[in-house]
């Protein structure tokens, strides 16, 4: 039977490092006897417990998270600068949208650069490997790992020569070193693709609805441009993340993109039917599916933006198909 102290709830101490995604959050906590890796997806918290005495290694691998994040932010910044006319010609919608994109891009760029270089940390025991998603930046990961290693050292005292010999066996007959499996399996966030899809649709719908309510013009320039920018940000972000990740996560992102575009297609088709565009002859289903709501009324800048969205969409579809094919 276990010792009496197990009746008391463990007192957790949060280690440095957090990770935020779309409707997901990750953190890592230290109890006196175990490490708790927490990932939250929507309203469910998932836990992985690793006893300190069982931890065999903590592996830190370098990633290009900072470079990818900074490139995405710079892209948004550039798109905003291209969209916004300079000098600003009064309080126009185009100026406001471009300014918003510039502000978001600049802020994201500063944050990405300030957070430091990226990494992926995996904690391994004899039987399992757990990816600590909260430690996605090297600076925070190193601080957290220092505290973790101190705690591990406290429960795993160094072996004496006799203990080492006893563990290893007789000197005459040493145990052959077993090769380790080379790959460190990543722990993907639970149902990340569903959250991504829902969040993208919700944001797009909310912005479009807001723009519609403000402008009182159905499917006109305002929601088109706002939605186009949002889709571009989401698609490019998804694309670059997909390129920088491992196969299991790539599949999740690919599924997210495919489902997102599928769901958009259904929604757009419903709007097309309800709005009576079928009778009026405005727009067609493929154009709606790609987010091109009023191609004829859009100006050159918006047409270029929409062209980029269409190109990214096709690329995403190809990448998604390739990922699914490879997974099979």
């Amino acid at each position: 039977m276990a010792e009496a102290s197990q009746r008391d709830p463990p007192r957790y101490r949060r280690l440095p490092g957090r990770w935020y995604g779309v409707a997901t959050k990750a953190s890592v906590w230290l109890a006196p006897d175990h490490l708790l890796v927490v990932e939250r997806a929507w309203f469910v918290e998932h836990y992985w417990r690793l006893r300190l005495r069982d931890i065999e290694s903590v592996v830190l691998q370098r990633t290009r998270a900072r470079e990818i994040g900074a490139a995405t932010a710079a892209l948004v910044l550039a798109a905003g600068l291209a969209l916004a006319p300079w000098p600003p010609a009064g309080l126009e919608l185009r100026t406001a949208l471009g300014g918003l994109a510039v502000a978001i891009g600049a802020m994201a760029l500063v944050i990405e650069l300030a957070r430091g270089a990226g990494c992926a940390v995996t904690v391994r025991t004899r039987t399992t490997s757990v990816r600590v998603r909260a430690w996605s930046r090297r600076r925070a990961a190193r601080r957290g790992m220092e505290q973790l290693c101190e705690a591990i050292a406290a429960v795993q005292p160094p072996l004496t020569a006799e203990q080492f010999a006893a563990e290893r066996g007789t000197e005459a007959d040493p145990e052959p070193v077993q090769p380790r499996p080379p790959a460190l399996p990543p722990v993907a966030p639970p149902r990340a693709w569903a959250g991504t899809v829902a969040a993208l649709l919700a944001v797009e719908g909310a912005v479009a609805a807001g723009a519609l309510a403000l402008e009182k013009i159905a499917f006109a320039f305002a929601p088109l441009a706002v939605t186009a920018i949002l889709i571009l940000i989401g698609a490019v972000n998804t694309l670059v993340k997909s390129m920088g990740r491992r196969a299991a996560e790539l599949r999740q992102w690919a599924v997210a993109v495919i489902v997102y575009w599928g769901a958009r297609g259904v929604a757009m088709y419903a709007i097309w039917l309800v709005a009576g565009w079928r009778e009026s002859g405005q727009g067609d289903v493929p154009a709606l599916w790609l987010g091109i709501w009023s191609w004829r009324s859009a100006d050159v800048a918006v047409q270029a933006l929409l062209g980029a969205i269409a190109a990214v969409s096709v690329l995403m579809a190809v990448l998604g198909g390739l990922a699914v094919h490879r997974a099979k």
Binding site: M1, A2, E3, A4, Q6, R7, P9, P10, V44, E45, H46, Y47, R49
Partner: peptide, 27 residues
């Protein structure tokens, strides 16, 4: 925990935040 439980009581115990809470995988 420090007392033997049957599976049903263990599940009930988890639901009420007892010692079994140490072993849940998600909430």
């Amino acid at each position: 925990a420090d007392e033997p439980l049957c599976a049903e009581c263990f599940g009930h115990d988890v639901g009420l935040g007892g010692p079994g809470l140490r072993y849940v995988s998600h909430l």
